[in-house]
């Protein structure tokens, strides 16, 4: 079982903990916003935790609160945009996993 799947497998148990630690991760991720825009964002996985994950990309179109579908070689599902960090060089977005493995 991959790290991602392992984390998702234990997501329910881990959600009982007060906090989630992050584990470095990698690989391409496709994010599709679940509204009429069907906007697709391509990025790179930075790290994962039991409850969420972080992606580096170049788009400034994601808004905190957006529901998205994510696709990674080790997992797919639905997530919600929690935060964005935009600098002149890059964009990072934190996601909270709603469902899926």
């Amino acid at each position: 079982m991959s790290v991602w799947q392992d984390e998702c497998f234990h997501a329910e148990e881990a959600s009982e903990r007060r906090r989630h630690s992050r584990i470095p991760a990698a690989g391409p991720v496709t994010i599709t916003v679940q509204d009429a825009r069907r906007l697709e964002v391509y990025g790179t996985l930075v790290d994962i935790s039991a409850g969420g994950f972080r992606v580096a990309h170049r788009s400034t179109a994601l808004a905190s609160g957006d529901t998205v579908a994510y696709q990674h070689e080790d997992g797919t599902g639905l997530a919600r945009v929690v935060w964005n960090r935009v600098t002149p060089e890059t964009v990072e977005t934190g996601f909270y996993i709603l469902s899926g493995c």
Binding site: R18, R19, S64, G65, V82, W83, T87, P88, Y96
Partner: peptide
């Protein structure tokens, strides 16, 4: 404007995770 912009939706996370974020 040349420094970071960070946005956080306070309603998207369970309360106990907001603190660590």
């Amino acid at each position: 404007c040349a420094k970071p912009w960070v946005d956080l939706n306070c309603s998207t996370l369970p309360e106990h995770l907001i603190e660590s974020e």
